[in-house]
Design a protein around this nucleic acid. Structure first.
Lengths: 333, 333
DNA sequence: TTGTATGCGTTATCAC
DNA sequence: GTGATAACGCATACAA
């Protein structure tokens, strides 16, 4: 059996309350401290967290629930979250519903079951209204990153997808492009609608023609971009392609190369996300950088306000601005 | 306050023992079952996991400790682990020591503290002997993925790096290459030494000349590969480059392009890992695919043998074979 | 500063 | 089938 504070107390010839107090940084006499140190070391004592959490009614842990733990897009966000969390003296544990059929809803139980003190839900898919509603109604500390299903009064953080695509369209316009094609993301993604809106509205604002034939859909994969570009090349009549993410842009470049076109000479192509490889492909990709770390930081900050705050927080949606990164995949006309 | 089984018992006019039994699937009378169902729903009762774990002395959870939770290389491994874990009726929780200065050693405490029933350590860096020694000596269920610091009697899983590089060198030889350059990985990586050995030994086995000048080091980044290739191009005298990972290979291709060379016409280049993008760059990259999912599955299987097994398991090192993937970055001479 | 006594929410061992 | 009762390991109010 694992040693308990009772064992430590016996060995150090004191009582378990004293052991407990010592372990929690309360003052003990110099000599008992020595005895306790020795006993703890000798027994290789470690506190039982379950017992501690049971009596304290808190865990000093926050949970981060993601759909796919090793989605590299989450890297910066998770870094931001852990940073803030550690600063607050909390541990982070990560839960993934990856392969199994569980959804985010099931993880709300982590709060009821007192396994964590707060939860950040991270996921780039569209969320169901009922699930978000449930998160909103719980009394626990919960923050969403990504889609909020249009529900008010829920704390959520996201990137400003609308203005991000707007920036890139205005950039292409500024360097002389007038006929733009657009490759959308999948219906299932939370950002798709906003990015598409950003494209359409900005096109119209700039007084450019909007040709529905030059708007094709993809699933945000390399393969999807490849196929979308082939489709666009059959239609023709554009000088630049706005891909709604970098992977799609890379696939599109591949398709163009395959058909003997040169980028950016024949077509300008831009992406969205600024994934690491975008800087290293040939030509390097002009794109929109998401403020991933800041998203994580902001989400964690809001969460800790809720965990620690006595006053009831206003639950609102916070949008962070992305940045245009200009590289070599666009030609100045 | 959150409702407890006592509250449920009161509302259902029975005792807490009956509630507990019902919750654990033991038989109760039809009518008490109805009353309990109703009470649980009405109170929105959820069990307190800390209390349960305290008395049961187990968690039904395994932990996966990674250095960087969103390293995309881990994706397949984590998928494999969760798959096996769910099949065994266990939950997975992930811990990351990413940005903070903690090392793997600190997470051994999760076992002592009874937060998890077993632990898989995943990390591509070299491990310190003392840390592995500590893992070996603990009585808990522990499995390592990656480096084992040369320690015997520890359960560890890894890819067969030596034979992977060997395969690729033999392939280049088969299609006519006789002068090969090599870009190593960083000292800090667990696989670097084995991959380098694989290159050197195979070169010699094939009777090819080994020129130390054609062996340059990198940090496995795109940037590192870029610089390594520039260095190699100054030396010259090779027809093919073996990069010890894909990212390096991509950087090398970038450097070659920049100096006006064409791949694979002027140089053949191969990588290692088969990351997703390798299929989509231009030219697509010939590389060595790591059996990531299988690594995860194997690691979890070994872990559960330890968790459930009564008999003492033999702790050994298991190496899984990678596969050569031939694409378009190599020229048949 | 220290020890005693109590409770946290659950499971398990008994008798009934 | 059911209900009282004793653990599980820890923190803390209170008395000393």
């Amino acid at each position: 059996m694992a040693p308990t504070i009772i064992d430590v107390a016996k060995l150090a010839k004191t009582s378990k309350s004293t052991v407990s107090r010592y372990l929690n940084g309360k003052p003990v006499k110099k000599e008992t401290e020595e005895a306790l140190k020795k006993a703890i070391k000798e027994l290789n004592y470690h506190p039982n967290m379950n017992a501690r959490r049971l009596v304290l009614n808190r865990t000093q842990v926050i949970g981060i629930v993601v759909d796919d733990i090793s989605n590299s897009f989450y890297s910066g966000i998770l870094k931001g979250i852990t940073e803030v969390s550690n600063k607050n003296g909390f541990d982070c544990v990560f839960y993934s519903w990856m392969s199994n059929h569980k959804g985010e809803r099931d993880f709300i139980n982590l709060l009821y079951e007192e396994q964590v003190d707060g939860l950040i839900f991270l996921n780039f898919s569209k969320r169901e209204k009922e699930v978000v509603e449930e998160m909103k109604n719980t009394a626990f500390a919960v923050v969403l990153i990504g889609d909020d299903a249009g529900i008010q009064d829920v704390s959520s953080i996201d990137v400003d997808n609308f203005s991000g695509v707007g920036d890139v369209v205005r950039y292409l316009h500024r360097i002389g492009h007038r006929q733009l094609a657009y490759i959308t993301g999948p219906e299932s993604a939370g950002a798709t609608q906003e990015r598409t809106n950003g494209f359409e509205k900005t096109i119209r604002e700039l007084g450019l023609a909007f040709n529905p034939e030059l708007m094709v859909s993809s699933d945000w994969s390399n393969q999807g971009g490849y196929q979308a570009m082939k489709q666009l090349l059959e239609v023709g009549g554009f000088t630049a392609v706005v891909a709604s993410n970098d992977q799609t842009a890379l696939g599109a470049i591949g398709a163009a190369h395959e058909q003997g076109y040169s980028i950016p000479k024949d077509f300008s192509i831009v992406g969205f996300d600024d994934i690491e490889i975008s800087k290293w492909i040939y030509p390097s990709l002009t794109t929109v950088r998401q403020p991933f770390v800041d998203i994580g930081i902001k989400a964690a900050e809001v969460l800790f306000e809720k965990i620690k705050g006595t006053k009831k927080q206003a639950n609102s949606r916070i949008l962070l601005k992305p940045n245009l990164v200009i590289r070599n995949s666009c030609l100045n006309l």
